Amino acid sequence: MLDDGEIDALFASNAPLAYLAGSPSIAPLFPDHAAREHDRYRRTGIFPIMHTVVAHRGLFEANPGLAQCLYRGFLVAKDAAADRYREARPSFQVTTMVPWMCNLPEENSAMFPENWFPYGIDANRKALETFLRYSHEQGLSQTPRAVDKLFAEELWLT
């Protein structure tokens, strides 16, 4: 649709296939997006939240402990992926053929703390509060919202 002019813009984490195929009709809004993202992270300390898990509050009310169980499960999975990365890192065994990929761990380590993707409310409070403030300022929410009220109460101390 973007390539055919049916839509004017696309906000996505992956480049559209038509762009990757070299379509002259598609261009990034910010050609230097990586440099801009790095600069914003350095200035604000906020790295955009990649994913969220959403469920009806009634599900958690009917199943006490479910939110904590899910949270711990996602932590275990993230830690396993990070461990696999750290184990392969010394030998630069990467799963893709990308030039200078071996430099990426050092570049990221210089910018990010060891835990690149922190989980939990407190670890992401600044980003969540900023998101909620922008949402209200831009008219997407009629009233300001408190971060903790978005999450199951059993997760408030995470």
Rank of each mutant, 00 (worst) to 15 (best):
R84T: 12
S141Q: 06
D3Q: 01
R86D: 02
L2P: 04
I121N: 06
Y134R: 15
G73E: 05
L20M: 13
R57C: 02
T44E: 01
F151T: 12
F151M: 08
P16C: 05
Y19P: 00
D32H: 08
F74G: 05
A35Y: 01
A15M: 12
R40A: 12
H136Q: 13
F11M: 13
D32Q: 13
W116S: 12
N63T: 14
R86W: 00
M97D: 07
A67R: 01
Q68E: 04
Y71S: 03
I26E: 02
G120N: 02
E61M: 08
T52V: 15
E61V: 07
G65L: 03
Q93E: 11
L10R: 09
Q93M: 08
D122V: 11
Y71E: 02
P105I: 00
A9D: 10
E107P: 02
F92P: 03
E61L: 12
A27E: 15
D83V: 03
D39E: 14
D4G: 13
V98H: 11
V98C: 08
R84G: 10
P24I: 13
L70W: 12
V94N: 06
A21L: 15
A82C: 13
W100N: 15
L59M: 08
T158R: 06
V147D: 06
M97C: 10
L157A: 09
I49D: 02
D8K: 10
I46C: 02
T96L: 14
L104M: 12
R42S: 00
A146D: 15
R42D: 02
F112S: 00
F11C: 08
N63M: 11
V94W: 05
W100D: 15
I121R: 09
C102A: 09
K149M: 15
K126Y: 00
L75D: 04
G58Q: 03
Y71C: 04
R40P: 00
D122I: 04
N108E: 12
F30H: 15
F151S: 09
P118Q: 07
M1P: 04
F60N: 06
E87M: 01
L150R: 03
E87K: 07
E129R: 06
F131M: 14
L140I: 03
F117H: 00
Y41A: 07
A15W: 07
N103Q: 11
L10H: 03
L2H: 14
S23Q: 08
L59I: 15
Q93L: 10
E137M: 04
